[in-house]
Amino acid sequence: MSQTPSPDVVIIGAGVVGAACAYYARAAGLLAAVVDRGPVAGGTTGAGEGNLLVSDKEAGPELDLALLSTRLWRELADVLPAETEYEAKGGLVVAPDETTLKALRAFAEGQRARGVEAVEVDRDALRELEPHLAPGPAGGFLYPQDAQVQPAQAAARLLAASGAPAYLGEEVVEVLTSDGAVRGVRTAARTLLAPAVVNAAGTWAGEVAALAGTTLPVLPRRGFVLVTEPLPRVVRHKVYAADYIADVASDSAALQSSAVVEGTPAGPVLIGATRERVGFDRGLSPQALRRLAAQAAALFPVLADVRVMRTYHGFRPYLPDHLPAIGPDPRVPGLFHACGHEGAGIGLAPATGALLAAALTGGEPPLPAHPFRPERFDGAPPEGARPAGRSRSVPRRNP
């Protein structure tokens, strides 16, 4: 086993969140090292669509985090290579009826108070924005701040820009401690000594927390994505029915699906998203795939006869109150967490990295960090967090 030169911080996880933590640690003057049992973006990041959304987040701490990340992603787009495929395409939320449209108005009103751009569009304007959209919706809301990246490339380019050495294919088997405080990590190949360790292990973050002698109730939530054959740009924005907002907020373990449809620079259309808690079951779900295909064709009839070239799925790291855990763990000095973002990790990664860098250096955080404190599950929910089980105010239709 080799002894590697000591960094200031070891980051466990080479997904987009771990890469962002390394990038902003470097910006704060820290030397980071990244370790992952697989490749870059080998977990949740590589199975994502690359969503950078504010449209699906109600007013509160997660939305504030998303707005900060929106600004930071724009800055990153100017310095990262073009392969990141940052595209400020905007999001379009579609309301099938007047009742849902009324609920969307109230939802958007709260968002606007926090700085979100939300523009109501009527039935005719919807068709101007998306000519291939099915007739019938009562209206919707356009969110110009919604954007997109190629997730695996975003993680790889952020990690490369951080300058951090990455030890890939090396599983952390021990979090080293002394007198109750973290002192580094050990893999089968090497020991990495550092005064700080960041748990950015995604759906496996609970296991990493246990290695350090603490707990974090991260659970996997499976989701599928369909990829069509390459097409002309038939979908201009990221388009989804209002059901999706309720699905994101739901605590149900059962299968839920609501179509999120978007074109890509390369041509294929991506169709998500499903959610279900089935542990780490990687089995294919024909029911989930049929639902997605039917819902996408209902939004865009032009897709009904388009070939699906492949499907992929992954696991979102789910925490009970739908907020990530970001910051120091007071139960284990030297341990920091950056995990539990569920399906929003790609969008929230830069703000997470900036918050972590401030915590590591004792600097002023860019926004209040209290709602994301990792130890909050030991007691009462943090102020401002949405308690588990409370749905957002947009009604959910039966599938």
Rank of each mutant, 00 (worst) to 15 (best):
D281F: 12
G343R: 09
D378N: 12
R373G: 07
E383A: 15
R112C: 10
L303N: 00
S178M: 04
Y24Q: 08
A358Y: 01
K57Q: 06
Y312L: 14
G340D: 06
H370G: 15
H132T: 14
A388L: 09
E342W: 07
P366A: 15
T84R: 06
A351T: 11
V234D: 00
S2P: 04
V261S: 00
L193Y: 09
V235D: 02
E130F: 11
L335S: 05
V16L: 03
L216F: 09
Q295A: 13
P220Q: 12
A296G: 09
L76E: 01
D146A: 11
Y24T: 14
L211N: 09
V16S: 01
G115I: 01
V225S: 01
L176K: 00
V248C: 11
R290E: 06
G362M: 02
V185E: 00
A47N: 06
T352Q: 03
A32P: 02
R310V: 02
P328W: 15
A358D: 03
F141A: 05
Q111R: 04
L319S: 00
M1D: 01
A118K: 04
R277F: 09
A156E: 12
R112K: 14
N398Q: 14
E170D: 09
P350Y: 12
G206V: 01
A155Y: 03
L126C: 12
T214D: 07
L360P: 02
K57E: 03
D281T: 08
W204P: 12
P81F: 02
V35C: 02
R397I: 15
A242I: 06
S391A: 15
E49R: 10
G343Y: 15
V10Y: 03
H313Y: 14
I271P: 04
E375A: 13
S6R: 14
G363K: 07
S69T: 10
L31R: 08
A103E: 10
A20C: 08
A369S: 15
S258T: 07
V93S: 02
P135Q: 10
E49D: 12
L355H: 13
E364M: 15
L31M: 04
